[in-house]
Design a protein around this nucleic acid. Sequence first.
DNA 1: ATTATCTTTTAGGCATGCCAAAATTAATAA
DNA 2: TTATTAATTTTGGCATGCCTAAAAGATAAT
Lengths: 218, 218
Amino acid sequence: MRTETVENYLKTIYNLSSDNTAVVTNQKLADKLNINPASVTEALRKLHELKYVVYEKSYGTRLTATGAKMAIDMVRRHRIWETYLAKELGFGWDEVHEIAEELEHVKNDKLINKLAELMGNPSFDPHGDPIPDAKGKFQKNKFVNLSEGKIKGAYKIMGVSDHSPVFLKYLEKHQLIIGAEVQVKNIEEVDGSLVVLCNKKEVIVSPKVAGNIIVAVK
Amino acid sequence: MRTETVENYLKTIYNLSSDNTAVVTNQKLADKLNINPASVTEALRKLHELKYVVYEKSYGTRLTATGAKMAIDMVRRHRIWETYLAKELGFGWDEVHEIAEELEHVKNDKLINKLAELMGNPSFDPHGDPIPDAKGKFQKNKFVNLSEGKIKGAYKIMGVSDHSPVFLKYLEKHQLIIGAEVQVKNIEEVDGSLVVLCNKKEVIVSPKVAGNIIVAVK
DNA sequence: ATTATCTTTTAGGCATGCCAAAATTAATAA
DNA sequence: TTATTAATTTTGGCATGCCTAAAAGATAAT
């Protein structure tokens, strides 16, 4: 099996079983990878042989320790590249994902570590997602959704949970970017939208949008 | 045919037909690519169909305009990455080739152009190999330090790397100004100083001074 | 418990990109 | 020119990674 193929499967399984405990169904994998479920079955059998996953037919799949390690390594590479592209090369945060998707397959740990070092070993990428360190350890974050914000509460935007370009562009337009400090002035009772002060300007944030903004309480 | 495969063939053909005129034999390609000659025959037939090469059986191969363009693009990407890895990330010169070999396949021109821009759009990589610009044009003249000049070599002064008034005044005094044409008559074995002919006058240039004079090879 | 529905797996196929060995073609020397 | 040698191409095969369609298995509703 080609490394790139293995990496893509493991990464996807990892992302679908967030806490690395849940079992992933073939259908979901097929959807994410945009391939036929039959192909997933084949691939999983091989990944099982290779000891990257434990796969019981008609039941589901989970990563082995080895598989999880590789997956987390992919997450690290991806997020380091994303951060680098955005922070150092000035790419828009809506552009970085696609490029990182290719760069993450370059097999050279020293390269990733140098890039990380160059940026001061960041713990979060431009989307606010945590970057595991070289040993695969994540920095624990205790962030909340802006939708849980309270009137007069002050917050700092740490990340987003919707990574679609449409969403990211929308946020940028209103200066609701990573690192921005916001203050909730009011919460409309009618629809639950938040009136927040950001960069000295008032912005109305719908509950849906707020639910996709991750903030740290200040 | 996978893009990466195409790219590797075109790049190799390009490198083997330096001036882009010569015909490349299958055997040489097979050797360079570490594959069986039979596989080369197959691949070339496909590349011919795809209009990347003109391939006449039992004769040889040369790149079409399209093929050459792609190949030169690969050269640019490779050399930009090499330069970047060495200059910006501190990789040793022996390490960069292998990594660049992977990075060069990442399909994003904006990325390469940003990297190039970051480094001031270099025309030569640290080896002195020319880096084609985004349009595929090579800079004719190769810039080197005058300290790398060879006996009987003819050069044109293009710039200096020491901008101190003392240094500039010294150069002026000896007519060693931008645009001046110089010829190395001799290199003293004792201290490595160069005897150069400039404006029909002989000048002794110490290694230290020569190291701060940038010249184009004529 | 049985049917209807949905998911997963099996079976058979296809394109890619490589191989080894045999056959052909070209180049070189006698 | 003919024999020898070298390069090239043909042939048949193999692994990868995907596909579609059909069979088998699991799930849920009546």
